[in-house]
Nucleic acid binder design. Structure first.
Lengths: 108, 108
DNA sequence: TACCACTATACGGTAACACCGAGTACCGCT
DNA sequence: AGCGGTACTCGGTGTTACCGTATAGTGGTA
């Protein structure tokens, strides 16, 4: 499935938040996770821009740690603001998706 | 509910296609329909840009007809390309939304 | 040693989209 | 004449995912 990029706008960041909320992880691994989740076309560059944005917006705490198989990794965990943002994301998602589904199922 | 605009990117156009697919209608009425559907913050300007895009991309057939309560209306109906686009939209929506829901329900 | 694949991050630029704001215009009511 | 509701247009804005390229560490292999 391709051509999903427009539909992912506004939701991909939420997905990244959810993944980080599940466990402390880093950009490259998040990309692989998204790929195996079905978003096969998402590449590292996209995830890194999201991670930098999350950091800039103060939603995550970052820890740089060496890796044994490559360059150092930047590990991310959600802080309180991040968890709040994640909850808000799911609330929005539920709101939007339920309404779109109801539109699909036929009017009224 | 506000702050939905980013999440609507890529889906609002599909919603407009679906509404047009249901019955021949025009911009102002589509906006009202979206509002009562729950997308209360969507305004005329947004819908008109979508409609002009649909027209430019050859997905709709347009008929201008006078109104008894205001300026003439531009009525829209889907053509073959529009119906195809609509089907593709729902396929994408099902793909994306199912995957996001599965992410929410817990990993693996 | 040189090359390559995999791992890992950064960053400038692009296209698409929803949105904003201001403008134009037609109608009915007071 | 003025106002609110109806109806469309258009230039400009901000956010976002994406692209391409660069940098760099590790291990395998020819």
């Amino acid at each position: 499935m391709d051509g999903l990029t427009e539909m992912l706008k506004g939701t991909l960041e939420g997905c990244v938040l959810e993944i980080i909320g599940g466990e402390e992880t880093y950009g490259y691994a998040i990309t692989r996770r998204l790929n195996e989740l079905g978003f096969t076309d998402v590449v590292e560059g996209t995830v890194y821009t999201i991670l930098l944005r999350l950091e800039r917006n103060g939603l995550v705490q970052v820890t740089k740690r060496p890796s044994e198989v490559g360059p150092p990794r930047k590990f991310y965990v959600l802080n309180d603001a991040g968890r709040e943002e994640l909850a808000a994301f799911w609330a929005k998602w539920q709101y939007v998706s339920s309404r779109i589904d109801s539109l699909k199922e036929g009017p009224r």
